[in-house]
């Protein structure tokens, strides 16, 4: 007789681990991060370093305060993803304290106060971004003009928070530019005649880079198609409908899909599993809600882009969405 060790079923195959999944997400962000560095200058790298460092420090601090083992949580990479997403969402000319403050807020308040990984109702990266935007609206909308992006001296002054006049060195983002021009009763046609919004090419490039990363995640089965498709679909549908109504005042779907945080948001932010809906139909609703809100905020709201607020608002709705979209289990009549 030969004896064998036993274990409960299932016996295989090997599952993916959280750490592997997060590594893939980080990998998929590489093209986007490199493009951001190229078009926005050295500030992107500084933000990345500050956010990542703060994220890890805060995670370790929170875990030891909560008396949890450090190893597994630090190794699973989820906090790195949060840090990187915050960094990529921030403008490059920020006093150094802001990325630190924002990340600390995201990790400590939005994540650990609710019980850590898997428990947070709000997307920590977007909570951090919204916190900074509301508290430091001026610094948070200071985007360098294309010519000044790689100016080291200016960047340095920005990081140390030097008191100086930034006018003339900064430029609006394409979304912001269109918004201001429309507010001055220019038409889109006139804007296009003047060569289009400055920085539109860079914005397009950046979005394409995030799109490539997103397709990689889809192809590897890391994220599901439902949320990104619903976000982009709803955004495009809204843009298209309004453009049909008045093409002079409402930019095209293509413009909306390739500017601002569109693809970064659809593929990397809205898909944060913890704070998103988990039912198949719920994900479509959740994604469509984000896409629709982004459009509304961009078009009628007080901010040029609205991913953070759209995601946070839909996070609020997740418990309700989940409850209303429980799939019908096999063998249950429709009305049950």
């Amino acid at each position: 007789m030969t004896a064998f060790p036993t274990a409960p079923a299932p016996h295989g195959p090997h599952a993916r681990r959280v750490g592997w999944v997060m590594t893939q997400v980080l990998l998929a962000l590489v093209p986007g991060a490199l493009t951001a560095l190229a078009v926005r200058g050295p500030g992107v790298a500084v933000n990345l370093a500050l956010c990542l460092g703060t994220a890890y420090l805060c995670e370790a601090g929170a875990l030891s305060l909560r008396k949890r083992p450090l190893g597994p949580a630090l190794r699973d990479g989820s906090v790195a993803v949060t840090g990187v997403l915050i960094a990529l969402a921030l403008p490059p000319w920020l006093p150094w304290a802001l990325p630190v403050l924002g990340t600390a807020f995201g990790v400590l308040f939005a994540k650990h106060l609710y019980g850590g990984l898997g428990q947070n109702p709000f997307n920590p990266a977007m909570a951090a971004y919204a916190f900074l935007l509301v508290s430091f609206p001026v610094a948070m909308t200071r985007w360098p003009a294309a010519a000044a992006a790689w100016d080291g001296a200016l960047a340095w002054k920005a990081w140390i928070g030097a008191d100086m006049a930034w006018d003339g060195l900064t430029g609006a983002t394409p979304l912001g530019h269109v918004r201001t021009q429309l507010a001055l009763t220019h038409t889109l046609f006139e804007i296009a005649e003047q060569g289009g919004p400055p920085g539109a090419r860079a914005g397009l490039l950046l979005n394409l880079a995030y799109g490539v990363g997103g397709l990689y995640l889809l192809a590897r089965g890391i994220i599901n198609w439902r949320i990104p498709l619903a976000v982009l679909g709803a955004l495009a549908l809204c843009a298209f409908s309004f453009q049909v109504i008045d093409a002079d005042r409402y930019p095209s779907a293509l413009f909306h899909l390739t500017q601002g945080a569109a693809l970064l948001g659809a593929f990397f932010i809205a898909t944060d599993p913890v704070s998103a809906s988990t039912t198949p139909r719920g994900r479509l609703i959740y994604g469509a809600g984000i896409g629709g809100l982004v459009y509304l905020i961009r078009t009628f709201g007080a901010y040029p882009d609205g991913f953070a607020f759209a995601v946070l608002l839909m996070n609020l709705a997740v418990p309700l969405i989940d409850r209303l979209t429980i799939p019908r289990p096999y063998g249950t009549p429709d009305d049950a």
């Binding site: 016996h11 195959p13 599952a15 699973d76 990984l117 198949p280």
Partner: peptide, 28 residues
Amino acid sequence: QLQAPQAVQPCIRCGACVEVCPVRLLPQ
């Protein structure tokens, strides 16, 4: 061929379980 025992981590609500459930349950 066997699954090596691994440390259990908290559910990240990724929904992978929902996608594969043949009877449409929400395992998480």
